[in-house]
Design a protein around this nucleic acid. Structure first.
Length: 323
DNA sequence: AACCTCGACAACCGCCCGTCC
DNA sequence: GGGACGGGCGGTTGTCGAGGT
């Protein structure tokens, strides 16, 4: 007997999620927190598979997700991390807390793969013209130096992206300023007309839902705090850096709105991978990235051969020229 | 205007792993 | 110890819109 499917095939809805379904899901998670996905469809009345609910939440509804165009910085990080980690999208995503693994995977498959192929074919063209490919001509010493340089670059990029100073300086309430924030109704650069990809629709709907829901009328701030704790899957907010009662209800309300307003939709932020919204920082604990030093160790201790493959696949020089 | 092709991305599927009983 | 289950992950497919013919 094979493993039973995670959900009955009959009576399970498939395809794009509707706003109503999103609201049902979000409201449930607000009350109970993410997890126990098996129970979600039955408790919410959603005609969806539990996996589908989890996916919808983690990839699109979860607070702190940045969508829209990838910055050059993010692009570089993805390329470097892909070279280091391979197609371990979840691991790569842990270094880009605002991006989901699915998003990164899609971006890789649709954009970066092609770009790198172009580069590679370009390099091959060179070799045909008399230039030997780097992987063929490079000595081991050169290769190691390049590898170290590459790791250093990746490390630098990561530390820039994840440095606490930047997090603090960039994650402050300035993110909520109308000029750049969620309340400004800024249009995403690439907005699709379909609901599923119209994150602003979700935001608007959810905002409306929060305002109209009886619970929000009862105690908006309480919900906000609870939902933050629940949604983040941690109780981290309360211990250190606790939003004290000095953080008044308005601020918390703004924070909540920002959860679904996603200022980061605004792709006009120049180097947004370096900024992190407060909500995003909440989720950092959820998936702590492996320290890069460990990656280095792994790479040098066990993966020298893999490193060579990497270099032959992905030439630094080509890459440098490309960027 | 109708049809076709291609690209982008949301969602699904199946496998695997960790946890619990 | 091992089976069942829930959840995570990566690969793949489906859908839809844009652009081209």
């Amino acid at each position: 007997m094979g493993r039973p499917p995670c959900c009955d095939k009959e009576g399970v809805k498939k395809g794009p999620w509707t706003p109503e379904e999103d609201i049902l899901l979000v409201s449930y998670i607000q009350e109970h927190g993410p997890g126990n996905w098996r129970a979600v469809p039955t408790n919410t009345g959603l005609l969806r598979c539990s996996k589908s609910c989890r996916l919808r939440w983690t990839n699109y509804l979860r607070p702190g997700i940045r969508r829209g165009n990838f910055t050059d910085h993010e692009e570089k990080m993805i390329i470097h991390l892909q070279a280091l980690l391979g197609n371990r999208w979840a691991a790569i995503a842990s270094y880009l807390p605002q991006r989901t693994d699915n998003d990164i995977k899609n971006y890789w498959n649709t954009h970066l793969k092609k770009k790198l192929n172009k580069i590679q074919s370009g390099a091959e063209g060179h070799s045909k013209d008399g230039f030997s490919s780097p992987s063929q001509s490079i000595t081991r010493g050169q290769w190691e130096r390049r590898l170290q340089t590459d790791i250093h670059m990746a490390k630098q990029a990561l530390s820039e992206a994840l440095s606490p100073e930047k997090l603090i300086s960039n994650s402050g309430l300035s993110e909520l300023k109308p000029s750049t924030g969620c309340l400004s109704n800024t249009q995403p650069a690439a907005q699709s007309s379909t609901y599923a990809s119209s994150t602003e629709n979700i935001a608007r709907l959810l905002k409306g839902w929060v305002r109209n829901s009886p619970k929000s009328a009862r105690s908006n701030s309480a919900i906000t705090q609870n939902s933050l704790n629940n949604m983040s899957g941690t109780d981290s907010v309360s211990s250190e850096g606790t939003p004290s009662k000095a953080n008044n209800e308005i601020e918390q309300s703004e924070t909540f709105e920002s959860l679904f307003g996603f200022e980061s939709f605004d792709s006009s932020h120049s180097d947004t991978s370096q900024s992190m919204s407060p909500e995003a920082s909440l989720f950092q604990d959820e998936s702590k990235p492996l320290p890069l030093s460990l990656l280095e160790n792994w790479l040098f201790d066990e993966g020298a051969s893999q490193g060579k493959e990497f270099l032959s696949d992905f030439s630094l020089d080509d890459n440098a020229n490309f960027f």
